[in-house]
Design a protein around this nucleic acid. Sequence first.
DNA 1: CTTTATGCAAACGATTTGCAATCCT
DNA 2: AGGATTGCAAATCGTTTGCATAAAG
Lengths: 149, 149
Amino acid sequence: MRKKCCDIKITIQQAHDILLSHGLSRTEIKTNILILLAQSHTPQSANEIYNSIGKNKCNSSTIWRTLKQFHEKGIIRELNLGEDFFRYEFINQDKQDKHHHHHIRCRNCGDIKQLQHCDLSVFEKMIGQLGFKRMEHYLEFTGICANCD
Amino acid sequence: MRKKCCDIKITIQQAHDILLSHGLSRTEIKTNILILLAQSHTPQSANEIYNSIGKNKCNSSTIWRTLKQFHEKGIIRELNLGEDFFRYEFINQDKQDKHHHHHIRCRNCGDIKQLQHCDLSVFEKMIGQLGFKRMEHYLEFTGICANCD
DNA sequence: CTTTATGCAAACGATTTGCAATCCT
DNA sequence: AGGATTGCAAATCGTTTGCATAAAG
């Protein structure tokens, strides 16, 4: 069985609460994107979201503007999984920082699995010694999954 | 003093040798790109290379095609440093695999430093257990460097 | 001479932007 | 009402591709 990435069921009401608490307007599109991201088991690209919402129901620039806003507010995470586009992932508000993790993507079929563990203390110590602050890191793996091998 | 990333001086002759040993033709453009990458202290983007070579001396599609070839041959590494474009880095032929490393980029000024150490054994064990093979990883850091803080 | 490389122009896909119309508060 | 949001069309930018010409082996 596939490991879920987020898979958090949130109600419209909860989505509205999240939007409100971040000072964002509670529009249908924002609500839909938020619910979609929350219950996705894989980080979604702007285009995937666009298709899921329905190209007739929303414009792609709106998707993008919304994602940028969510990202700025810290509602979602912007991921660079070594593809030539970004993916976005809902950040579970409850266990916020504790849910930090990475991904492994199959270079063949594109399947993405989530890794539960992240210990980069060695790196962060090194980088701290270089004088850097407010660090962020991108650590993503690709490989060939069992199905493709 | 800034930590150098590659900073390897190679002669035209050495560049030619590298090209030959990889079955590539010894053209002026390939030679120039190779020397440039070898002596760059920072991974270079296609556009930076284009500017360095001189827009009048080479076409950007040639730069791209050359970079793709070098990458396929394993002469250079393609890096995704969390920017919206790729950077390329010369792989020192002598100590090939031993020179594996990562980078930290300042989100403010863009300065890039190299990290000397990479211990991702924990991750790789985990991923192996998920059934993945032939793994590659992208681990890059961003932060605010001492100058920008 | 046959293959590969290059320049040029045009295509592409992801992402961004300006503007006018429309929805929230 | 007044600022935020959306749709639409067009712009940008990184990257790729087709085709005709020039250079390499």
